[in-house]
Design a protein around this nucleic acid. Structure first.
Length: 260
DNA sequence: CGAACGACCTGTTCGC
DNA sequence: TGCGAACAGGTCGTTC
């Protein structure tokens, strides 16, 4: 569920809601997450996003690092609400608390000590994406361009939904080898990535089935999907039929007519 | 080294 | 209706 726009949405909402507040408790309900000592009494200094990951910096320098993987969500509610199904941990601020709900249990939470140093920054499409950089990274790589875009070392934050949407907008066939794209193709990909992701953030993400933001509201970008999940529908650009293929183990939707 | 694939989990949907 | 198979937003380790 959470790709860059969904995590960015949570990040902005958390900044508004928990910055400067004091943690009253952190309870881990799923032992799969490991044992984490509650940073009770620490204050939230900063909430930031690294790729699809969230980092919460605490007074004293520790950082809570959360990755929601496939099905993780965060939900803000009153602290007296009974535990919701699939709750993995709860972070409390007095009478309000945030639950992490994650049916598939892939999400990860770690508490890092300050001296570990800052992790290197990731290439991020919301902080400027360079066409030259993509060309350089693609080099002679022969994997499908869609798999290349989903490589988090290349561009952090793009997952299956947005890879399909970006390539549709750029009119590039997702099966093409990364090294086969021209400079103009890469410029189109760069522009499409910025446009699609910016718009998806404005929409607070894509609610295909169960994605909800911090306040339980669905996103709206599912109404603007051109390719993802639309097998059999007409392509919004050329009217031909969208097809679905399996590519590196993932469902991949595109228009074979106008994506070349 | 690059790329494909299975594993990690649970819930939902689809086909017979 | 019931049941098993296939599939689902991500990443990591292994294998070829």
């Amino acid at each position: 569920m959470p790709e860059l726009p969904e995590v960015e949405t949570l990040c902005r909402q958390l900044q508004r809601v928990i910055t400067d507040r004091m943690i009253s408790d952190l309870v881990v309900h799923d032992l799969r997450l490991g044992r984490i000592e509650s940073p009770t009494g620490k204050k939230i200094l900063k909430v930031s996003r690294r790729g699809k990951g969230l980092e919460i910096t605490l007074s004293g320098g520790q950082r809570l690092c959360l990755h929601l993987r496939m099905t993780g969500t965060l939900f803000l509610h009153r602290s007296d609400l009974p535990l919701l199904p699939h709750t993995r941990f709860t972070l409390s601020f007095g009478d309000e608390q945030i639950s992490c709900i994650d049916p598939r249990r892939f999400a990860t939470l770690t508490l890092r000590d300050a001296p570990g140093g800052d992790l290197p920054p990731l290439p991020d499409p919301l902080r400027g994406l360079s066409t030259d950089c993509l060309i350089e990274l693609a080099g002679k790589r022969r994997l499908p361009v869609k798999a290349f875009l989903m490589d988090q070392k290349v561009i952090a934050g793009i997952g299956n939904i947005y890879a399909c949407e970006i390539l549709h907008r750029a009119a590039i066939n997702p099966l093409r080898e990364a090294c086969s794209l021209s400079r103009d193709d890469w410029r189109d990909v760069t522009k499409a990535a910025e446009a699609v992701l910016t718009r998806a953030v404005e929409c607070r993400g894509t609610s295909i089935s169960d994605w909800r933001d911090l306040f339980g509201q669905p996103g709206l970008f599912q109404h603007e999907l051109a390719a993802y999940g639309r097998e059999g529908d007409p392509c919004p650009r050329c009217g031909k039929i969208i097809v679905r293929r399996r590519l590196s183990g993932r469902g991949t939707w595109f228009c074979p007519s106008c994506q070349r």
